[in-house]
Amino acid sequence: MSAILPPTDELDVLVRQVAGVDVLYPAGSIVATVLTATIEAVAHRLPLAPKVVMEQRADGVKVTAKIGISAAWHSGDVSRRVHDAIAAQLRQSGNPPVAQIEVIVARIG
C-alpha cells in the first residue's frame, strides 16, 4: 500500500518554472471521479486536486508530474529538465530514497 503525502505546492511551483512547461495537470487520476461524480462535484474538486503527486512507497518516494509543453520545444528535453529539477529538490529537502520520478507529457502545443 502506498500513502499519498500532503499536496506539495513547492513541487508545483518548481515544475511550472521549467522552460517549455506550458501547463501543469493534476497527476492523480480523475477519470473515475468524472464517471461517478456529478458535474458540480467534479467542478469543485478540480481546483483542489493535487497537481504534482508525491507518494511514499515501501522502496522510497514516488513523484508524478503531468505536463503540457509548447510545440517549439522537445518533449524529451523538457521532461528531462522537469525530472532533474524534481530530483534536485528532493536531494535538497532531506534526500529521501527515491523509488521513481515520473514525468508525463500529456499535451504538446
Binding site: G60, A99, I104, V105, I108
Partner: peptide, 12 residues
C-alpha cells in the same frame, strides 16, 4: 537514471 520514468502519451 534508473528511477526516472519519462513518457509522452499517445494522445499528445
Amino acid at each position: 537514471s534508473p528511477t526516472a520514468r519519462l513518457v509522452v502519451t499517445e494522445g499528445a
